[in-house]
Structures are given as C-alpha cells and as structure tokens.
Design a protein around this nucleic acid. Structure first.
Lengths: 159, 159
DNA sequence: CGGCATCCTTAGGGATACTG
DNA sequence: CAGTATCCCTAAGGATGCCG
C-alpha cells in the first residue's frame, strides 16, 4: 500500500520508471537545457539563449532541474566582482547522457539526415565519437528489433 | 539558405538533432505511447488506458505518431467481424527503443529505486536483460562522465 | 548579468457525451 | 471497439518590463 507515489505515476500500468523519468525530464525545454549543460553551458543567460526560450521559462525549468537534483546552483566569484551563480551537472544529471545521446542519434538518422549531425559526443580519453548501443547481459550486441519489453517486478499492471 | 527547416528548430544553436527528435517525441504522453507500443499494445483503447490518458488525447497523439511515421495504422479483420485498425511500430518507431531504454534505466536508478524496475527489456534470442551502453568508435566502453559534447557539422551555432 | 513579475497565447490533457 | 465533439482547466512558453 504505497500511497506516497507521485500522483502522476499512480495510474494503473503507468507506475513505470519511464513515466517516473518523464516526470522529471518530460518536456522539450528541460531536455534541451540538459543538452546545453552537457555542452558546457553554465550561465543563466547562455541557457536561455542557446535553448531558444525566454528567461522566465528558463528560470522555471532550471529551478525544477535543480530541485530534482540534476543540476546544482553553485556560487562563484570572479575577483572584484560580486558573487554569481552557475549551474553544474550532478551525477544524476550526468547519467542522463545516454538519453540525450539516444535522442541525438535517432534525430540524426530520421529527422535531420540531410544536414550533418549537429552535436557530436566525443570520448574525452581518445577523441572518438560515442554512440548508444544496446547490449544484453549475455553480452550480445542487440538490435532494437530483437527486443521485447515485459512488465518487471515493480510493474503493478493489475487494473 | 535552407528556409525549409521546421520553425521550431530555427533558433540559433537549436538546429540540433536532439531538438528535431523532440519535435516528434517531446511530450510525456507521446513517449509513453511508444513505450506501450514496444510492450505489444496495438489497440486504441489499450493505449489510452495503459498510458493513463483520455481518448481524445490518445487519438491526437497517435495521429501525430502515425503522421510522423513511427506507427502505422493497419487494417485487420477477424473472421465474421468488421474491419478494425491496429497501430504497429515502423522501423523508425522501433529505432526509438534506445531512448525508451535509456529513460527506463535512468528512472530505475534515480527515481524508482525502491520499487523494482517496472519494465524489463529482454533479448528475444537469449532472454537476457538488455541495457543501454555508451561505446566509442575505438570500441571503448564509455561512462557518461568521460564524454564531452561538441558542435558538429550541422550545428549552426553562429549567433 | 541573473533573474522575477506580469500578462497573454497556445498546446496538452481531463470529463463527458455521442457516433460508426 | 474505436474513435469524434465539445467544453474547460492547467502548464508551457513568449513578450515586456523591473530589480538587485
């Protein structure tokens, strides 16, 4: 009888980690802000401008991302300047990279094939481009078509 | 000058395949409908119920997904019944699985840790659970923290 | 520079009722 | 079963202006 569950994930069959993730990063601008964070953006105005949203929207989304623990608002002070704040990725935020990468690869393949890829992910150690791969625990490389999704232990598809 | 680009991706720095992908699957319900499709759901009422949205919303999102080519509406006829339609994944839709998988894994790790995973992805051939992995072209396994995102050839971050 | 306050528009989505 | 029609509410987001 878990009645502490977020109301938005309470529907039968929707108590799902995909839904939970989307409660946090389920909007376009939220994911674009995270993309920007991965690209090294740290300052408020840069976020707003590079994502292409207004300051009020940027402020609201950034606040949500901080509240959810994907970003931290870190004070810093340049000599002779007053204290300012920048937004830094947390571990929780950093681990969202596979989602961004998967979206980027899908967009490259199916939506923006004519123009080249707009963002590249590089392995810092060796400089090579990074891709998302599906791999099973038996260590097979897996194609999307070879997978079936099934309810897991936390599914609660009882309605 | 390419003036055929979707208006929503026209902003400086946002002509990005992540943004293009999010133009198609940028809402919560859209991605949940795709999750359902991967779980084998085919019929309209099942989509609406299992995603937890009303029929009007389901109809609107499904129509968009069909228009975008992620699903196809396929007629079928059971003997003695009138013609009905079901929604099937296309290749374009199927290739969205890494996005869903990455979201699921992130949600499992950071949002629903106490309950078990609600959906499992299984490799059909061997039954083993499937995970998203980042891998570079030099064939290294890559952690999220070892990556830097950089603008690519189609970036247009000129503003 | 880094926001917040205000006002407005639009898109997503719930509820209900109705049709083929 | 598979939707459509209607009405209404809320959240996302643009525009403008203010403020520390």
């Amino acid at each position: 009888m878990n009645n502490l569950v977020d109301e938005r994930t309470e529907w039968p069959g929707s108590r799902c980690s995909v839904a939970s993730a989307l409660d946090v990063v389920g909007t376009r601008s939220t994911l674009l802000l995270m993309r920007e964070a991965f690209m090294g953006t740290r300052r408020f105005d840069d976020f707003a401008e590079r994502v292409g949203i207004g300051e009020p929207a940027a402020a609201a989304r950034l606040k949500e991302l901080v509240a959810a623990g994907l970003l931290v608002r870190v004070p810093y002070q340049e000599p002779g300047q007053r204290t300012r704040y920048e937004y830094q990725l947390t571990e929780k935020g950093t681990e969202l990279l596979p989602v961004i990468t998967a979206l980027r690869e899908w967009g490259d393949r199916w939506e923006t094939g004519d123009r080249g890829p707009s963002v590249l992910a590089r392995h810092r150690d060796c400089g090579a481009t990074v891709h998302t791969r599906l791999r099973c625990e038996a260590d097979h490389e897996v194609l999307a078509g070879e997978i079936e999704l099934v309810p897991g232990p936390g599914a609660m598809v009882d309605a």
